[in-house]
């Protein structure tokens, strides 16, 4: 059962990472990177490291996403994308 959960989480993480690199829309790319961090915190929990899981859930998927969105907001009037 645990193996099934791990395989599913790994596949979703890899898909989200590829989407973060290849998405045309920058905001959806940033949200995909946040999804990678959130699933990573579940993996830390399964690996018996609850301290790291809390840190990753709060920093990796919370504050990092916010910092990216704030920085994107600062340079909103940009032309090209990709």
């Amino acid at each position: 059962m645990e193996l099934v959960i791990l395989v599913v989480i790994s596949l979703v993480m890899i898909a989200a990472a590829i989407m973060a690199i290849y998405s045309k829309n920058l905001i959806s790319a940033i949200i995909s990177a946040g999804v990678v961090s959130l699933l990573a915190s579940i993996i830390y929990l399964l690996l018996a490291a609850p301290d790291v899981a809390m840190t990753e859930a709060a920093i990796g998927s919370g504050l990092t996403t916010v910092v990216f969105l704030y920085a994107l907001n600062k340079m909103r009037k940009s032309g090209k994308d990709g």
Binding site: A20, I21, I30, A33, S37
Partner: peptide, 9 residues
């Protein structure tokens, strides 16, 4: 921004 995203991955 994508380069920084790759760094965080």
């Amino acid at each position: 921004v994508k380069i920084v995203l790759g760094f965080s991955l």
